[in-house]
Nucleic acid binder design. Structure first.
Lengths: 197, 197
DNA sequence: AAAGTTCACGTACCTTCAGTACGTGAAGGA
DNA sequence: TCCTTCACGTACTGAAGGTACGTGAACTTT
């Protein structure tokens, strides 16, 4: 094999090829239905290369999931940060999540296989460092400024993120385009319920 | 092997043994970490017997999940049906779900591995025939009687069931016993938001 | 610049697992 | 009593994840 460029460059190229191709395959076929041989063939390398970069199939999946999580978090933050009002940041952020998460590619990796492959607690921890943190942050701010009734933040965070995850999965499978609007309306209604009187 | 009793009896006994032992193992180790050899050893049969009853490992898991789903649905219905008022049925049913689903055994099978092993849509369909149907039923009744603001039932159902699933998973991992109360309070507050003015 | 070291892989192999083919003996019917 | 059915047990296979070790180019050292 003709190795191009410096060693660090080559290393990075191989790693990215593995992550990119496995992300594609995991998303379309699901973690369990994708073999390592299929991945390395698509990436144009061998299993030796894969195990030089990742200690296991699950570790490779973790790398993919991290990438997906960061992308989702970024796209949500983009939308939310465009708003001035904290309350509007919450609402628009939630709506952005519902829109972004409709992508089946994101769904399978982030919402379906993620918890099963890495275990729920690890999956939770990863969420917490990306998009979950934003949600908790905004909710905390809103409680502090008195917009939302004083209460523990964590239960609220999990209730909302769970509601949105499930709704996103359902929306992806639904045919009626009106479902998205209906869901967002119901969600906003629930959010409004949290507001202090 | 000394087969006791009639053929139908024996058949049922082995099937139940397989379901019982695999349920135990799936719950404690997770679907992926349990081998069929381990299951048949625990059940006191061989792989021939397993594949005579179930066409695949996933099918065996499906049988286990069905059993778990029915148990959960029954326990919730028990609590909810004790109430006269439809609204109180919703509230007590939701609270019952949070309490029941705290069991790690139920969690791993029903909430973590279920969607990944069977695929989300099949998992959703199974839910729909058990506990999910009760929730949709009650919500529909409440909308019909005007207690809840008129709106499509499905989005609401998914938002709520998703919120409760995630909350249950979090509660199981949490240490603070006050978390359960906090979550139930937050949930009830969200439910109340749905009420027509 | 030559020799030595590191490292990013490739090759060959092992183990385990889900799944299959086929044999067997008791239950049930004729 | 004979024949069929069926609920398994036994023995095997292919594929999958994972490992041990070799190799040659990139870097370091002298």
């Amino acid at each position: 094999m003709t190795t191009r460029g410096t060693r660090a460059e080559q290393r990075e190229r191989t790693r990215q090829a593995l992550v990119r191709e496995s992300r594609r395959l995991f998303a379309t076929l699901g973690y369990g239905a994708v073999g390592l041989s299929e991945i390395v063939r698509a990436a144009g390398v061998t299993k030796g290369a894969l195990y030089h970069h990742f200690s296991s199939k699950a570790e490779l999946f973790r790398a993919v999931l991290e990438q997906v999580q960061e992308e989702v978090a970024e796209r949500i933050a983009e939308t939310a940060d465009a708003r001035e009002d904290t309350w509007e940041q919450l609402v628009s952020g939630c709506q952005a999540f519902l829109t972004v998460s409709t992508d089946p590619v994101i769904q399978r990796i982030m919402l379906v296989d993620g918890p099963a492959v890495l275990g729920w607690s690890e999956w939770r921890a990863m969420n917490e460092t990306t998009s979950g943190r934003h949600l908790a942050q905004v909710l905390g701010d809103l409680i502090e400024e008195g917009t939302i009734t004083a209460q523990p933040v964590e239960p609220l965070t999990h209730l909302l993120s769970g509601a949105m995850n499930e709704a996103a999965l359902w929306l992806a499978a639904s045919k009626d385009p009106a479902d998205l609007d209906d869901t967002q309306n119901a969600l906003v209604a629930m959010l409004r319920a949290l507001r202090a009187t």
